[in-house]
Amino acid sequence: MGCSSSLPDRSSGQLAGLNSENGGVSDAKNLRVKLVLLGDSGVGKSCIVLRFVRGQFDPTSKVTVGASFLSQTIALQDSTTVKFEIWDTAGQERYAALAPLYYRGAAVAVVVYDITSPESFAKAQYWVKELQKHGSPDIVMALVGNKADLNEKREVPVQDGIDYAEKNGMFFIETSAKTADNINQLFEEIAKRLPRPASS
């Protein structure tokens, strides 16, 4: 899990450290963002992260126990960088008891479902409600329909996802960790939607 690509940002003075208390912003040009992935078991949360961070896809990946962490930095066109600190949580229902530990204080929540599984879509809606009640009030939420490569087995229509996302003020995208479709776009779009700190 070691190889996150992190830029040597914030190598500046010691006095600058005091304002970085809560997992958020460091300065106007280099943002740090805590992101949490939620969703039913087996929808491909870990695969999305692995694809985004390492560019790999493993069809037989391991069950996530508890949660796992990876980070990745991307550069935007306006020459700002965004360092995503990604918490990939376990999908089984009972691990929901531990989820608040990870989504508390997160600036971004990515709620993932599997387009071939209506149950996972229902579960995604549960997570959205949970986040609306207990997440940070200004959390940026994205709804992601994964496994878009399995279009012939699709059971959740695109429009359902779009509608639900719109109703809840979320960003919506369908991805495929397997083919890498829309994975980078997902994170870039999230980065664009982040609230920027007032430039100093």
Binding site: M1, G2, C3, S4, S6, R10, S11, G17, S20, G23, S26, R32, K34, S68, F69, L70, S71, K83, E85
Partner: peptide
């Protein structure tokens, strides 16, 4: 370490080795 991400990544990879 200087930020949360680095600290967690470091601990994870150190523990893993």
């Amino acid at each position: 370490t200087k930020d949360a991400g680095d600290a967690i990544t470091l601990l994870q990879s150190l523990a893993g080795s």
